[in-house]
Simulated assay, not measured.
Amino acid sequence: MANPTAAAGVDPRAGANAALASRWAKPAVFTLCLVPLVWTMWLAYTGELGAEPVLESVKASGLWALRFLLIALALTPLRMLTGVAGLARFRRMLGLFAFFYATVHLSTYIGLDQFFDWAAIWKDIVKRPYITVGMGGFLILTALAATSTDGMVKRLGGQRWRALHRCVFVAGLAGCLHFIMLVKGWQTAPLVYALICIGLLAFRRWPIRLGRRKDPQAGRVSVRTRPAAAPRSGEAPAPRFPDGSSPARRS
């Protein structure tokens, strides 16, 4: 039985683009991005974060920072593979949420874990390599967040702005390395995050060529057609069907 959606000529990508372009799409995504923070706060309030709630809060916020960063990096490959151009609207928002959760991660560590003991914090940064790597990634995210506005794009210029924001992959790799060095022994989860980040970087460096050229704005596949040959002088033009095809092609 034929698919009724296909029979009606409805492009699912057009529906997805329309949904993502609606006025409610960004508020809905914004609200969803706050769910992990609200859930962690609720667990802390109800005493369900375990014996070390501060440490669990630090871990949870850091993990969500890495997740949002990888999701933001995955939007471009998803847009290229699916043709849903509306995904690009949320790349900046998700990147800023990665910076937000990284800030919560660092603030919880400084304020609730170390109680603003700057001497102890500095010793941790110097003595523990995973903290040094994490701080490096956070500094990169800070620079990217500070230059994420349209005004900064104009000030820096498109070429310099793009060169700076390619460092987001360095921040992602630093976050994954921070996670790997933090856990004890070789565990599966940190390695999975690292492989995802490396895969996204490889896709960005060597994107998959689908063999068809996609319109980045409409998300539709454009097909190159050969222009019809012009009639010779004094020769009547060849007959054509209303769609421009030749009768010889249909025979």
Rank of each mutant, 00 (worst) to 15 (best):
V153E: 03
V153H: 03
S251V: 14
G185M: 07
H178R: 09
I208Q: 14
D243R: 05
G211Y: 06
A60T: 04
T103S: 15
F241A: 04
L55V: 12
I125T: 05
L63C: 15
P4H: 04
D124Q: 02
F116M: 10
A7C: 11
L210Q: 07
S61Y: 06
W64R: 08
Q159S: 15
T76I: 10
P242V: 05
A248N: 13
G86F: 03
G111D: 12
V183T: 10
A51S: 13
V170N: 05
L210W: 11
A8M: 11
L70I: 11
P227R: 00
A25I: 00
A236L: 15
L70Y: 07
F115Y: 08
A238S: 13
V183Q: 09
A18L: 05
M93T: 10
V221L: 12
S233D: 12
A238Q: 13
A51H: 12
G86C: 04
R89I: 01
R67S: 14
W118N: 08
W161K: 03
V168F: 01
V223N: 05
W118L: 10
G9W: 05
F97D: 03
P27L: 02
G244M: 06
G157D: 03
R67V: 14
P129R: 04
V153S: 02
L106C: 07
D113C: 08
F90G: 00
K26T: 06
S246M: 13
V126H: 02
L78C: 08
G50F: 11
G219N: 06
K214F: 11
L70T: 03
L73T: 00
G234Q: 05
L191S: 13
R232T: 08
V170L: 13
T142Q: 07
D113I: 08
G151H: 04
T147V: 02
F241L: 08
R23M: 07
L112S: 03
T142S: 10
